[in-house]
Amino acid sequence: MRKYETIRTELNGGVLWATIDNPPLNLIDERFVGDLIALLDDTQADGDVRVVVFRSADPDFFIPHVDVRRIAEYTTVAATSGGPDDISLGALYRRLSEARPVTVAVLEGRARGAGAELLYACDMRFASLERAVIGQLEVGTGLVPGAGAIQQLVRLAGRGQAMQVILGSDDLDGREAERIGLVNKALPDEELIPYVGRLAARVAGFPEAAVRLAKRRINAAALPLKEDVQVDSSLFQILARDPSSGARIGALMQRGLQERSRTELDLGAALGEL
C-alpha cells in the first residue's frame, strides 16, 4: 500500500489503522481529500484490508472542519474521485460508506462540521469520554451542513435531536453523543483503543462475503439517497458565497479560527458569542 501525505497507515491482521496526521490542526484541505480518495481506491483493491480504523495523531482534533481558505481547492480534488456525480465531500463520504472494508472511527478529540460528517459516514463510531467533542457549526456561521449531516443525523438520532444539533450549532461531549446515537459507544481513554481493536479484529476474522453482503444490505436500508446529499451540498455552496456567512467566518478568523486557540477548542461557545 502506498504512503499518503496526511494519513499514516499500519496493517495488522486485516485491520488497517489509518491515523489522520495533517498539521497544524487536521483541517480538511485538498491534500487530505486526495489522500482519502487514494486510501479508498487502495483498500477497495486490497483484499487483505478487511476493516479500516480512522483515528487522529492530534490529541485535540480529529478533524475540526474544512479549511475555509481552501474550499475551491478541495472541492476540485473531490470532483476527481470517481465520476460526474462525485463533486462534493458528500459524494466522497458516500464512497466511504459504501467501501468494501468495514470502516470504524475513533474520536479522541474534536470533530466538527465536515469532520463530524466523516464520522457519520463510517460504519461505526466510538468516542473518548474524556476528550471527544462533536458539533455542527454550519448554521452558526450562516451555512448549512453540506456533506451529509442533515441526512445522517435524522437517521442516527431522530428529527428532534437533528434539529437541536444542527440549528443549535453547539458542542456535544462523548457521553451526550452516545445518548442520542451519534456514536456507538463512549469509553474511558484507557478502554477505548483496546475495545475498538478487539471489535475490528473480530470482524476482520469473519467470512468476508458474509460481512460484505450484510454491510451492503444495512446500507440499502439506512443510507440517504445520493440526490438528497447533492441538494445539501448545493445549498452549502450557495450560502458559502453569501456575504453574511463570509462576515461571520471572518469574525471567527479574527478570533483565532483555524489556529490552536480558545475559539477552536471551544467553538460552540465562540459561535454563541458572535
Rank of each mutant, 00 (worst) to 15 (best):
I180Y: 04
A116N: 03
D42M: 08
A147Y: 04
R179I: 12
E208H: 02
E178K: 02
E259Y: 10
D266N: 10
A247R: 15
Q136A: 12
K3I: 08
P207R: 02
V52I: 07
V231I: 07
K215L: 01
N12S: 13
R131Y: 05
R8T: 15
M1R: 14
D228W: 09
L11S: 10
L153G: 09
Q254C: 07
V144T: 13
L213G: 01
F62T: 03
L92V: 11
S169W: 08
L252T: 13
L271I: 10
V106A: 04
A220P: 01
G174H: 08
N22Q: 12
P84D: 14
K185P: 06
G140Y: 04
V53L: 01
L223P: 01
L119I: 10
E273L: 07
G197L: 01
I20K: 03
R198N: 04
D228M: 09
R55K: 10
G109H: 00
G158A: 13
S97I: 00
T76A: 09
D123C: 03
L213D: 14
L172Y: 09
D46P: 05
E191K: 11
P24W: 06
E259D: 15
L223F: 00
V106N: 04
R202V: 07
Y195N: 09
F61T: 04
E130S: 05
Y93D: 01
P64H: 01
L235A: 08
A116S: 06
G115Y: 04
G246V: 10
L39E: 09
F62K: 02
R212P: 02
V211N: 02
F206Q: 15
Y4K: 12
G90D: 01
P23T: 09
E176F: 07
D86K: 07
G160D: 14
R262S: 10
V51K: 06
A18W: 08
E191Q: 14
T103R: 00
E117Y: 00
A78H: 02
I37T: 09
